[in-house]
Design a protein around this nucleic acid. Structure first.
Lengths: 232, 232
DNA sequence: GACTTCATGTCGTGT
DNA sequence: ACACGACGTGAAGTC
């Protein structure tokens, strides 16, 4: 890892073109050659960057300024992306051996919500029982396939945040599932849209299509029992 | 901007929980208090981070190790996010004055594609003329409203990358527009889905719904004339 | 402030 | 390799 603090100007050309006027910034060059240009604000996203794989060439302009040219060596990109950094004044330039990172461990995303609801389908609707998780269809798996108290099929789509595209997704599944006579013997397949939070527009669209909405309390569900052993 | 290179362990708790085992990494602390933990690979996204507004408290554990606690001070987040960084060995710790960044100038995003197509609607379909950009409807503006050679209305949805949700969006617009007698006098409103690249699934769905697809060559369009003056 | 849409999105996963 | 969906998506613009 190389870290340079310098007054610089940056130009990017690739899927779009972008320009950064001359100012003092931090430039990180990672071991894989990727480059990040950070300002002293904003957020975790750099102002400009180049993703690996790429190569950095260090040169000089006619008037003696240092110029870096970073070129993407990715396969797919037809006209390779380029990042040009003009260094006017270098305040600091250091290198550090970091070694390989052991990587990140996560917990608490949609998969876990699905595991919890698979264990407690009745929290979505009274008498609901699980048939199968990731029930396969031609256009992808339905999160949960269930049966209601009367034995009719119920498809459940789970999202952490319930937005309009989740309703569209469930609608497509229902359309397909309702063509299967085996599933519709006891009436049409119903849909339940389950999420920790459901946006108003999504709720309106779901209601309009006869899809029920269920707001899920993740912490409460987790309190019912401890499923950590199955999650790892 | 403060930059620390250190052997450290990181724990995040917020919308999810995440853990980074002890290893050497780069920690950036920006002027607004935001913190980024970078490894020597991956891409521009840090392994862990805290977005502003947040506060950093520097403390020590019982066995004398340095411990940073970064707490989000954002309003909405109920149980404030926290990032805990345990510093085992600091290799480098420096501060730099960067000043305010003049900001980024971009060209080539969807807005510009829309501007170009508004100037040259005939590249989408022969005889097409522009009625209005951002044509308002109850559920949001249609990118381009046009008329074909026969005078019938044509709604155009523009995306940089054409995926399934773009087709869904255009479908919703068309459904609404086709309820307006003023627009359908000369026949139903047709749809054109225009993008620099159209994914197969999106193309299938569009075709299935009678929506035409148009792949747009941004560079070629820009070559027709120079619209830079209007873009800046 | 809530909501919607865009993004050089990035990132994982399954085919 | 490619396609698809999730993301601590983030960020910008609109109502």
């Amino acid at each position: 890892m190389r870290i340079v603090v310098a007054r610089c100007q940056v130009d990017y050309a690739g899927r779009l073109t972008a320009h950064l006027p001359m100012a003092t910034r931090v430039i990180m060059v990672k071991a894989d050659g990727s480059v990040l240009v950070h300002s002293d604000g904003g957020s975790y996203k750099p102002l400009n960057w180049m993703s690996p794989p790429c190569t950095l060439r260090e040169g000089a302009t006619d008037d003696g300024q240092v110029e870096w040219t970073v070129t993407s060596t990715a396969s797919g990109k037809g006209p390779g992306d380029t990042l040009r950094i003009l260094l006017e004044e270098v305040h600091s330039d250091s290198r550090h051996e970091l070694g390989v990172d052991p990587g990140l461990q996560k917990d608490g995303v949609e998969k876990h919500l699905q595991a919890l609801l698979a264990d407690h389908p009745a929290t979505l609707a009274d008498g609901l029982t699980l048939v199968r998780r990731e029930f396969p269809t031609a256009i992808g798996p339905v999160d949960l396939m269930c049966r209601d108290a009367a034995g009719a099929s119920v498809a459940v789509e789970i999202k952490r945040r319930g937005e309009i595209d989740g309703v569209e997704q469930l609608t497509r599944y229902l359309e397909l599932l309702n063509r299967d006579p085996a599933l519709t013997r006891l009436g049409p397949v119903r849909g339940i849209f389950a999420a920790q939070e459901i946006k108003p527009q999504a709720r309106v669209l779901a209601t309009d299509r006869g899809i029920a909405c269920a707001v899920v309390d993740y912490d409460a569900l987790r309190g019912i029992d401890d499923v950590e052993d199955r999650l790892f």
